[in-house]
Nucleic acid binder design. Structure first.
Lengths: 235, 235
DNA sequence: GTCTATATGTTGATAGAC
DNA sequence: GTCTATCAACATATAGAC
């Protein structure tokens, strides 16, 4: 976004594809190390020293590139969550387009909302993105609240609108609550809290059917709330 | 536990009900202050200084009574969660007794599991217990994992067994996953993440119908998972 | 039992050499 | 750009006076 007229390099063909710019490499290494540590131990429990040590640079280098720990955190989250949410928003838009006139099937809406979280698009990066997204819901409000609302607010509103179209008879307020239940189930699953109860050995292809089960669970839950609304149980 | 033969004071009738023992009062003030701070800002983000300052005592007093920050944390959790889980276990046992021969209704099981979390038994203490329980699911694993398993493990196993009896046709592994979705929705709601989407002004009597909605949602979700199992979708 | 004083380590952030 | 050196503030925990 900042450099708009600089997308392609003008004159030098840049023959060697090797170490482009050292500064960029450092910045990237810091982002990667921070992402891993933040996702594993949370934001507050991760020190700048741990991050810079894992990245193989000094603390000052990190502060030069990002200015503060909070800024580094925000950069990491934006980097990971933006990609993730872009896919989720695109999937929701696709469903909205396919069902522009009729009510979209609730399962399709939920698949668009939940699916991208579990798709193994990138090998190591994806697992990180999930955990970071989950951390945004668990770490202390004063550090994560604003960031969470910025990153997830629009997506949640879009989702709520689409769910309301899928269940037109439901009271919007109750649907909002049902959506929060859904988000809770999602966050808890993504946080890696699944193992203790189910054996859950191979987390490799396991994700695919976890999503399917989750879609069924949440769709049925939402329909139950909608039905309760339709029966006059608004209060 | 340490003082077993000292439960009741022997000879003096203790006429004044006022300041019993100063030491006990300090210990209690520390527990209360720690509970509030832990529930609001999480364990790692709360310092001993903050706790002791809020309690009006010195840091050494806290370390005298509890020995370490982790021990204080465990004392706080045990104090709050034990009460909470005792009520939940009792409710589950009551359901199991009432339906000793036949399959218990899923809604009854869920109400026993979820209801005590939202009952306003104690005015200020209850809100704290909820938030602390939620923190145990969100704070970094290295501080909360063991404690969480100790406190919630037995309850979860009891719950899973009862759910399996309510839905005999379901595959236990899938039921376990469905139970995790339920726990996720519960934790997220208890964490106070409800407001941003629903207006949710009066949290006073609001809780009652939040539970009802949640029971409907989770029961429908679990039944959907059980039905999918019965249809042969085990894998 | 509770305090003051202190030991010892870590935190996030900065100044200035290179 | 990246480092070393250093800062003040804070952390947990302990020793010893009262």
């Amino acid at each position: 976004m900042p450099q708009s007229a600089q997308t392609a390099q003008p004159s030098p063909p840049a023959p060697a594809p090797a170490p482009r710019r050292v500064a960029d490499a450092t910045r990237e290494r810091l982002l990667s190390a921070a992402a891993h540590l933040f996702s594993e131990r949370g934001f507050v429990a991760t020190s700048m020293r741990a991050v810079t040590q894992a990245a193989g640079v000094s603390v000052s280098a990190a502060n030069y590139h990002f200015g503060s720990k909070q800024a580094l955190l925000e950069a990491v989250c934006e980097h990971h969550i933006a990609l993730l949410n872009a896919r989720r928003l695109a999937a929701l838009d696709a469903v909205a387009d396919r069902f522009a006139t009729s009510a979209p099937p609730l399962e399709e809406v939920l698949r668009a909302f939940l699916g991208p979280l579990f798709e193994p698009s990138d090998p190591g990066l994806q697992q990180c993105s999930r955990a970071i997204a989950a951390r945004l819901y668990s770490d202390p409000p004063e550090v994560a609240w604003e960031l969470r609302e910025t990153l997830f607010g629009p997506l949640r509103l879009r989702m709520l609108a689409l769910v309301a179209r899928a269940l037109p008879e439901a009271d919007p307020a109750q649907l909002g609550l049902a959506l929060q239940f859904t988000v809770g189930a999602m966050v808890h699953s993504v946080s890696g809290n699944l193992e203790p109860v189910s054996g859950a050995a191979g987390s490799a292809s396991n994700d695919a059917w976890t999503v399917e089960l989750m879609i069924d669970y949440c769709a049925a839950g939402m329909r139950a709330v909608a039905t309760r609304t339709a029966l006059g149980g608004t209060r």
